[in-house]
Design a protein around this nucleic acid. Structure first.
Length: 376
RNA sequence: GGGGAGAUACCAAAGUGGCCAACUGGGGCAGACUGUAAAUCUGCUGUCGUACGACUUCGGAGGUUCGAAUCCUUCUCUCCCCA
């Protein structure tokens, strides 16, 4: 994996760059659609390629490990071939499941014991096994196994959790260096900064992570319920320490506004379930604001879903029709909303790339933010 | 013509003397959702009021009772079975 910064914004820490993996060229800032179980929910690969035009998507180690399992993944020749996706893939390590499935796991120094949410079976994930699994999945970018701390979280818990995450990082990195890719393309390994909302812990973690010399670095444990201002403050602290010549990935973020703010703070990569999940639940993100398509006021609005949108569904269907589909539980509604939202998110980061390249990012951002948060 | 069952809020459907402004679904209205156990979850849904509460409700009318959606009388309507 290579990363090159092409432009920096004079008014902020924003950068426009390009990541090259063996599968694709990824202009940054980038938004990576989440495809947890080997599928970006509701979006087939052709639309992902054409309308969304995503250069990279996510998969999830925990979910793919449980189903279809490693034997099938190996037999398929890795996730790219399994799902017929020729562009890049990043796999999350399962660190988020340490947080979201907290009731089903037990943390130990050696790793995390999990009860499968599918059949209750017990599994031990270690920093080493998570590397091995991601070798089998074959993602272009693999992630360290961490603990995503909950919020709120007291200092003592955050301190101990951070130490665990750092120990796991060293072990994961060692395993990564001692193993090889299985399918002929290169793989990268990103460490993850933790430290909850404590600036001192975040600084310490950022230094620790920076010392590992990875080709890219991630910031985790944010957007778990804390106020946005605290998240920005943490990102700012961390980015002042993480190497500027490596991509920075803010995990799990976020709203369109969160993304533009974090780009200003020097973040290059994002992922979030919001465009797909909220889309399925009737929320549409547009350049003019947020639409809750389930609201009665759209019942007879026969204008296009999003007249400014890049996706074919934006002009193909009316708001009234989309509302009808979502209200009726028709799966086409979820598909249209997801495709619209993802296309919008990718448009947003591509536009950010253009504005940074032109040196106009900050003015563009201040113009966009009020519009993006408007409730239509 | 004879026999039987039933009428409860937008719909369906509990409730058979006080804990009932009335269970529960659905529908409707609104909200939530941030490295996906989510095509999920939450709230409200007689009227007025922020709320305490007040007022009007369980087919119609009348009655019994301290008290009725619940018991009695009667009327209206619906459904089923036999002719």
């Amino acid at each position: 994996m290579e990363f090159k910064i092409l432009h920096t914004d004079p008014g902020s820490q924003a950068r426009a760059g390009v990541i090259r993996t063996d599968h694709s060229e990824i202009r940054t800032p980038v938004f990576m659609p989440v495809g947890t179980a080997g599928s970006v929910k509701g979006i087939h690969q052709r639309d992902l390629l054409n309308d969304v035009n995503a250069p990279i998507i996510l998969g999830n180690t925990y979910h793919l490990f449980l189903r279809p399992g490693l034997e099938i993944m190996k037999e398929a020749g890795g996730l790219h071939r399994f799902m017929n996706w020729d562009r890049s893939i990043l796999t999350d390590s399962g660190g988020y499941q340490v947080f979201s499935l907290a009731a089903n796991r037990k943390l130990k120094p050696e790793g995390a014991w999990f009860s499968s949410h599918i059949d209750g079976s017990r599994h031990l994930f270690t920093p080493e096994s998570i590397v091995d699994i991601q070798r089998i999945i074959g993602a272009d970018i693999t992630m360290a196994f961490d603990e995503c701390t909950p919020w709120p979280c007291d200092l003592k818990y955050a301190r101990e959790s951070l130490d665990l995450t750092h120990q796991w990082l060293k072990r994961g990195l060692k395993q990564f260096r001692e193993t090889e890719p299985l399918y002929g393309h290169n793989q990268a390994f990103f460490p993850i900064v933790q430290g909850s909302v404590f600036p001192e812990l975040r600084k310490e973690s950022a230094h620790f992570v920076a010392e590992q010399g990875a080709v890219g670095n991630a910031i985790g444990g944010l957007s778990v319920g804390e106020p946005a201002e605290e998240m920005y403050a943490m990102v700012d602290v961390v980015n002042s320490i993480l190497p500027a010549d490596r991509p920075r990935y803010l995990m799990g973020v976020g709203t369109p506004v969160n993304i533009l703010e974090a780009i200003s703070l020097g973040v290059d990569m994002f992922d979030c379930v919001m465009p797909t999940r909220n889309g399925r639940n009737g929320m549409l993100f547009t350049a003019r604001g947020i639409i809750n398509i389930k609201n009665r006021k759209w019942i007879n609005d026969f204008t296009p879903v999003d007249p400014d949108g890049d996706s074919f569904v934006d002009r193909q269907y009316s708001r009234a029709y989309l509302r009808h589909l979502i209200i009726s539980g028709e799966m086409l509604g979820a598909q249209i909303a997801s495709l619209h939202n993802l296309t919008f998110y990718l448009w947003l980061v591509r536009q950010a790339f253009e504005e940074i390249s032109r040196g106009t990012y900050s003015t563009w951002k201040s113009k966009m933010i009020p519009a993006l948060s408007t409730r239509l």
